[in-house]
Simulated scan of single mutants.
Amino acid sequence: MLVIFDLLYREYCRARLAEMQRLLLLAGESAKPSKAGHGAADQTHDEKDSQQQRSWHAAD
Score class of each variant (00 low, 15 high):
V3Y: 09
I4A: 06
I4G: 01
D6H: 15
L7I: 11
L8G: 02
L8P: 03
Y9T: 09
Y9C: 07
Y9W: 15
Y9R: 11
R10P: 04
R10H: 03
E11R: 10
E11D: 12
Y12N: 02
Y12V: 03
C13A: 12
C13K: 09
C13N: 13
R14K: 12
R14G: 05
A15W: 01
R16K: 07
L17V: 09
A18K: 06
A18C: 00
A18P: 06
E19H: 00
Q21P: 03
Q21S: 08
R22K: 03
R22C: 07
L23K: 05
L24C: 01
L24P: 04
L25G: 05
L26I: 07
A27P: 00
A27Y: 02
A27V: 09
G28K: 10
G28M: 03
E29I: 05
E29S: 04
E29H: 03
E29R: 04
S30G: 14
K32C: 02
S34Q: 07
K35V: 01
K35E: 02
K35G: 08
A36K: 12
G37Q: 14
G37V: 02
G37Y: 13
H38P: 00
H38S: 14
H38M: 14
A40C: 07
A41R: 08
A41H: 08
D42V: 12
Q43V: 00
H45Y: 15
D46N: 11
D46L: 14
E47I: 07
E47R: 02
K48Q: 05
K48E: 10
K48V: 14
D49G: 13
D49A: 13
Q51W: 12
R54S: 08
S55N: 13
S55W: 12
W56C: 13
H57D: 15
H57I: 15
A58S: 00
A59H: 10
A59I: 08
D60G: 15
